[in-house]
Write a protein that binds this DNA or RNA. Sequence first.
DNA 1: CTTGACCTTACCATGATGGGAAGGTGCAAG
DNA 2: CTTGCACCTTCCCATCATGGTAAGGTCAAG
Lengths: 134, 134
Amino acid sequence: MQIGEASRATGVSAKMIRHYEQIGLIPAADRRDSNYRDYGAEDVHRLGFIRRARDLGFSIAEIGDLLRLWGDRDRSSRDVKALTQSHIRELDAKIALLGEMRETLAHLVHCCDGDNRPDCPIIESLAGAAPISH
Amino acid sequence: MQIGEASRATGVSAKMIRHYEQIGLIPAADRRDSNYRDYGAEDVHRLGFIRRARDLGFSIAEIGDLLRLWGDRDRSSRDVKALTQSHIRELDAKIALLGEMRETLAHLVHCCDGDNRPDCPIIESLAGAAPISH
DNA sequence: CTTGACCTTACCATGATGGGAAGGTGCAAG
DNA sequence: CTTGCACCTTCCCATCATGGTAAGGTCAAG
């Protein structure tokens, strides 16, 4: 099948399929006489794998590791589990950071009247100790 | 003061200070005879404002809006509050997305023995063999 | 034979930041 | 005075994952 059909079948844009090939995440696709890329069931399967991993927030580098583990019959599930736990920790760190921002802002919003007057604890907090002189 | 001192005083790298000037987020700094940028108290104050907003996850465009509101004596706190609430909703969306990833992965990790054998529900789920349930 | 859908490569853009090269400036110590 | 060093300048390139667009080739149906 052509790249467009493979894209539709997997939810990975044709643009990204070419990109993944270019950076070596997937092997170079077969070519027809027309020079069009040609994809088979295995390629589509691999692209589906990549899309699911991407949807779970794995980076390209991590997806490369996962693909290697996927293709390795002698892999230990320990390795996969460790990679995944490491990724969960990354997610937890991001969530914690965003959560802190969210709470700080929620507090400021709570303290802000939100009326027509200029007095605003949000701006004052961003401005820090001393107001600008004008 | 020179850019390095302004950087140290605000926690914004010299690189980013030049960048903010280049994209028009801050006015072009005064120059000395040496062509070195020269920063005063007001500039440092503004950079501190930017750094705090950045630390709360505001985008450059949003920080531009906040700077305009900061400098506008006739602003209504309503506008600042609305901008902040909009940003909180963005943060909530990101947190929810990351949280979903996290929970899905936590479930898979829980189901994975993590031993020397290759059988691994994590890889199987990515491969599309089984739906991701939680 | 044209039209339109599809493909190809190549280049540029995002947002926020860092790295580094090549060269100018300023100040203190030799 | 010269050397050395810290600091500054501009310019270009890289990240990560993705999209856009342009210029052109391929192919099937009308």
